[in-house]
Simulated assay, not measured.
Amino acid sequence: MRSEGGESGSTGAHMMALALLAILSAAVSVTHCYPATFQDLGESGRNRTSIRFLAVGDWGGLPYPPYVTAVQKTTAHEMSKVAEQMGVDFVLALGDNFYYKGVDSVDSPRFQETFESVYTAKSLRVPWYVLAGNHDHAGNVKAQIEYSQRSDRWRFPSYYYELNFHIPNTGKTLTIIMLDTVMLCGNSDDFVDEKPRGPLSAVDANRQLVWLQERLARSQADFLLVAGHYPVWSVSEHGPTECLLQRLHPLLLKHNVTAYLCGHDHNLQYLEESGVGYVVSGAGNFLDPDVRHWNHVPEGSLKFFTGQASTLGGFVHAEVTESKLVLTFFQAKGTSLYRTVLSQRKFR
């Protein structure tokens, strides 16, 4: 009897192990499939054929009263006007959300002082999709992620993530991949113009890179955007980011990405190289006319630059239609300065 019991016990254990294995392998295949969930544009998407959003970086106020700069306030005001006039479904917040050392906890008053009480217009009460910059990493990025649970518009689900949208009434799709370039390349100290010195954790950096490669390789989106804080190309103070030129740039070209959006340099720039658009939108809080890396970008790639204090700040409005991406660069003084059009991806 005992030996039979032993046999059935071992069979039971064996079956249990197999069942567990099946569950685990299913879980693994699900994690590697990354099923695309699409964001809901709500009622506003019913009667039109485009998606519209704003991109603003380096907008993070000040850590002492009045917690905002004149540039941030003026830019916020102009963003609200453009959002009202041209329509906006969401905002991409491209990092350096809180100067100078991020936030320390989810209860930080900075969320109120620098975000909620500045971007108050009804037209800006849309989802804000957030990524972290180097100043955010000087504080507690997890607290910014947690704040997603406290705010009805702050969307920061994890350090890096993917957004998918149906362009209403067209059958076309838009994908935006939000990166953590500080995790990928390391932090930098703006005050000594330090370049990123390599990631804090090589394991975390490589995990993000593998995830990115998989997302890009399987993307069938008609428009594919990648966003991060550090620039790939920039003519300004920080210049091109060597780490991104090595690790990200080849992927953008290989997978025919439509555009890369970033901040970090405190101005507006548009560069185009090998069919990829490079948008620098870092004029949300400070302005910097510096062009020391003018000759460090591909010849002929720079199409537009402004960082003059007289503009009072700036941001980018994007509209994705059935066949094209229209980018318009605005100064906070109330005029558009530059407009460009990128066409949808071609699959080889």
Rank of each mutant, 00 (worst) to 15 (best):
E237H: 12
R292C: 12
L337V: 06
H255P: 08
S343K: 05
L62D: 10
G102S: 04
G95A: 00
A19Q: 12
R292E: 14
I167L: 09
G239K: 00
E162V: 07
Q344Y: 12
R110N: 15
G61E: 03
V82L: 04
A17Y: 04
T74E: 14
R218Q: 14
P250R: 06
V82S: 02
S281P: 10
K254D: 10
V182K: 06
G334F: 02
V82E: 00
I145M: 10
Q72M: 15
I177V: 13
S281T: 07
F111V: 03
L163C: 07
F304H: 07
Q112A: 08
L184G: 00
D204M: 09
C262K: 10
A283P: 02
D107W: 11
F115V: 12
Q112L: 04
F347N: 06
T49G: 01
R339D: 06
Q308V: 07
L92G: 07
L20R: 11
R150T: 08
L342F: 05
K142N: 09
D189F: 09
S151E: 14
F330Q: 03
G57I: 05
P250A: 07
S188H: 09
V210K: 06
N267V: 04
P168G: 07
G45L: 07
A13P: 11
G139I: 01
F286L: 14
E319S: 13
Q246D: 15
A76N: 01
G186Y: 01
L92W: 05
A217N: 05
L200H: 05
C262Y: 07
P231Q: 01
V192E: 07
E113P: 00
M1S: 10
N164Y: 14
L92D: 04
T173E: 06
E272W: 03
W59P: 00
T306C: 08
M178L: 15
G42Y: 15
R292L: 11
P231L: 01
R153K: 13
L225I: 05
